[in-house]
């Protein structure tokens, strides 16, 4: 920023509309949400003027509840499982589809589709895959002789968790593939050539050349992936709605349930605020990480 154009004050007018909009519909609601979480707001007190201020009572009761511990556990398991597989397959696809030939580019483009179709449709598609009768997963396992009877994937706690993880892995792979393949395309080709000359094998080239050179892409994809998976909502809501017996109750679904099913707005707000704080911590870590490489 050596030289600045004249009339810098004009700059504020460009930013103001978007900022004002975000203030009205994001920042103010977030503050409002925090206020609700410090009050006692249920359906009966919603419209009354003076809502009782209860301090951190909601936080204490939420943090002590078994349901919260369950939803946190489910969310963490879901996130870790999804990210591990999405990263692995995304990386694999990025490596394999590195070649710039037309058929490869076309295949890569088509593989983007799972990422851009609405989560609602993805959820219904995977509900069909995991259907007890007529679902291809059961049919395939039967044909391979791996199971004897059809499994009710979405009707049992453990298999339901597996189902939502598989569904989410599928739609997240393209995200990792694209981010990582951009990173890969920026690694100079002669790095590989000279490594090959020195007798490095494929595995050594991966560890000593590829990974260090795409570190930024790896970091960005992992942190963003974790944030997006941690706040996943629609896919699971449509597939299982948190059930059976809360086995797929992600924190987002848990919060929604309190606010819009049992109308305990304060509890719902408290849960979403805890979720927000977790994501904020991850987000700030990301910003700190990126800050080193990127001049804001």
């Amino acid at each position: 920023m050596k030289k600045v154009l004249k009339g810098d004050r004009v700059g504020y007018f460009y930013i103001l509309p978007a900022l004002l909009f975000m203030f009205l519909f994001i920042f103010f609601p977030v503050i409002y949400n925090t206020i609700i979480s410090l009050q006692d707001v249920t359906v009966s007190t919603l419209l009354s003027e003076d809502k009782a201020f209860v301090g951190l009572a909601n936080y204490i009761s939420v943090l002590q509840s078994k349901e919260f511990l369950n939803s946190l556990t489910v969310t963490v398991i879901f996130t870790i499982a999804c990210i591990v597989f999405q990263f692995f397959f995304g990386f694999l696809l990025a490596m394999i589809f590195k070649k710039n030939t037309r058929p490869f580019q076309l295949m890569k483009a088509i593989m983007m589709v799972p990422y851009i179709i609405p989560a609602t449709v993805n959820a219904i598609l995977w509900k069909f895959f995991f259907a007890t009768k007529g679902g291809i997963i059961n049919e395939a396992l039967l044909a391979l002789g791996l199971i004897k009877d059809r499994i009710g994937w979405l009707n049992q706690p453990k298999t339901a968790v597996v189902s939502i993880i598989v569904a989410n892995i599928w739609c997240g792979i393209p995200f990792f593939m694209i981010l990582l393949s951009t990173g890969l395309s920026n690694v100079p080709k002669d790095f590989y050539e000279s490594a090959r000359m020195d007798g490095a094998n494929a595995f050594q080239r991966l560890i000593f050349i590829t990974i260090p050179n795409i570190k930024t892409s790896i970091q960005a994809s992992l942190v963003l992936g974790i944030v997006y998976t941690f706040r996943c909502y629609e896919l699971v809501y449509v597939m299982t709605a948190g059930g059976p017996v809360d086995s797929t109750q992600l924190m987002t679904l848990y919060s929604y349930k309190y606010s819009f099913v049992t109308y305990n707005f304060s509890q719902g707000a408290t849960i979403s605020n805890i979720l927000l704080l977790i994501l904020l911590a991850v987000g700030l870590l990301y910003i700190k990480m990126m800050g080193k490489d990127e001049v804001m």
Binding site: I26, R231, T252, F265, A269, S272, L276, L279, V282, G283
Partner: peptide
């Protein structure tokens, strides 16, 4: 990065 549920209510 915000969760959508935080602004829903």
């Amino acid at each position: 990065m915000l969760p959508q549920v935080a602004t829903l209510v």
